[in-house]
Simulated scan of single mutants.
Amino acid sequence: MQSRPILWTFRRCPFAMRARLAIHASGVQVDLREILLRDKPAAFLATSPKGTVPVIDTGGRVIAESRDIMLWALNQHDPEDWLAMTQDGHDLIDHCDGPFKSALDHTKYAVRYPDLDLVTERDKALDFLRDLDARLRGSAYLFGPQARMADMAILPFVRQFAHIDMDWFAAQDMPDLARWLEDFKSSHRFAAVMRKYPPWQNGQDQVLFA
């Protein structure tokens, strides 16, 4: 019988990143199993039939959506009040996971979408980023001086978009967004959740996280 929840993850996946961020902030202890998406172990596929990360096995429940994993962790312990935000915060996450993520994919993987115009798709993503930049004007985070769930659910995807073409991104005149992203990337928490682990293998000791 497992002693702790098991979190299957892939280091660079922004969905997995947001789950690890919330677990780290909550202090809830889980056993982390890093996988390679090109070589998914059978034990992982038995837990996640879709073959997607993150997924967590709590011992009595399997949670296969990153946002639900964030809520699972924070509803147990939320010492930094990440859940203390209005419905507007959840709406921003909805937009991130919907239209923005779609435009991000169409930009990052443009070769897969020959029928779509790269500039048009990039501009769709940029509209959301400019809205975030305006919200961050004069504020450390989206909803004031403290980070909330919305910040940490969205930042991994902003990072992914920025890294498509960092020179282009830096030239877009979004100073507050750029500062918000840089503060995130230079934070101790980001370093903690981005630590490299070897891919899990059957019989391998698990890595205790958070």
Rank of each mutant, 00 (worst) to 15 (best):
M1K: 00
S3P: 00
R4W: 10
L7V: 02
T9E: 09
R11V: 06
P14A: 09
R18E: 08
A19F: 00
R20M: 06
R20G: 02
L21Y: 12
A22R: 03
A25E: 14
S26N: 09
G27V: 08
V28F: 05
V28Q: 15
Q29D: 15
D31R: 01
L32Q: 12
R33I: 02
A42P: 00
F44Q: 06
A46F: 01
A46T: 02
P49W: 00
D57E: 12
T58S: 10
G59E: 10
R61N: 14
A64M: 10
I69T: 02
N75F: 07
D78I: 00
D78W: 07
E80P: 00
T86G: 03
T86L: 02
Q87N: 08
D91Q: 04
H95E: 14
C96D: 13
F100L: 08
K101V: 09
A103M: 00
L104F: 14
H106R: 15
T107D: 15
Y109H: 12
V111W: 13
R112K: 13
D115F: 07
L116W: 05
T120F: 13
F128G: 12
F128I: 03
R130G: 14
D131C: 04
R137A: 15
G138I: 09
S139K: 13
S139A: 11
S139F: 03
P145C: 07
Q146V: 08
R148V: 13
D151V: 11
M152R: 06
A153Q: 11
P156F: 06
V158K: 12
Q160W: 05
F161R: 07
D165W: 11
D165M: 05
D167M: 06
A170M: 07
A171S: 09
A171T: 02
M174L: 07
P175N: 09
R179K: 10
D183N: 12
D183R: 11
F184G: 10
S186T: 15
F190D: 00
A191H: 15
V193D: 11
M194H: 04
P198A: 15
W200E: 13
N202D: 13
G203E: 12
L208T: 09
